[in-house]
Amino acid sequence: MSILSLKSVSKSFGALTVTDDASFDVPQGQALGIIGPNGAGKSTLFNLITGNIRADQGRIHFDGRDITKVSAMERCLTGIGRSFQIPQPFEKLTVYENLLVAATHGRNMSERAVRDDCIDVLERTELIGRANTPAGQLSLLERKRLELSRAMATQPKLLLLDEIAGGLTEGECQALIGTIKDVHAQGVTIIWIEHVLHALTSVVERLLVLDFGKVIGLGDPQQIMASQEVREIYLGIDV
């Protein structure tokens, strides 16, 4: 059963078509990677899924429900969580408080009810040792982990990761991949936009390639990366 399904979704800003007749399904529990050159419309695709922008055409179904016209807030409550490309923590709040705020407001529950879940998330993302540190004092890896934790604290069925591995050293990147694998192993469906390809392919089961808003490839990561069309468009390599 697919948890997310896009059918012929299109979005234009003026004459510029940023999402062009995109159709794909994400089965429950799968990790899907999205790659594409800069400006291919990857982040727009995320914005369409989270509801930050509305599709001009097409339908989006999530968890068996048509969410094409549902607000971003309500989509968050029905289980779509997102991490941002640039971490935006509340710098003066502690790590734990950042999660509390996300969990209480993102799930519409009382602070008491979400406390244990927040601690649980921090243990899984290996931030528990920094729980009482103001977020402004975190390292980049810790900020990325916090961004992931905050999305997790809303207990999403579908987790959208936007270039979460960017800017990390190789060692940090491996540590983060381990955490994301753990999250995925617990049954959370993941869609991950990433330029760090080896990070992406070590986690995802399927890869989707976007170019000029069109889905030009979707399938097994090894096969996709081996295809000549993808290599030419995405990597700019003449084979």
Binding site: Q88, V101, R150
Partner: peptide, 23 residues
């Protein structure tokens, strides 16, 4: 100590991000 207080501080810190969290 309270949920409202954390919402105050979160909003004071960054109103835009707070609204993304559902505040």
């Amino acid at each position: 100590r309270t949920e409202l207080g954390r919402a105050f501080r979160a909003t004071s810190d960054d109103a835009t991000t707070a609204s993304l969290m559902g505040i």
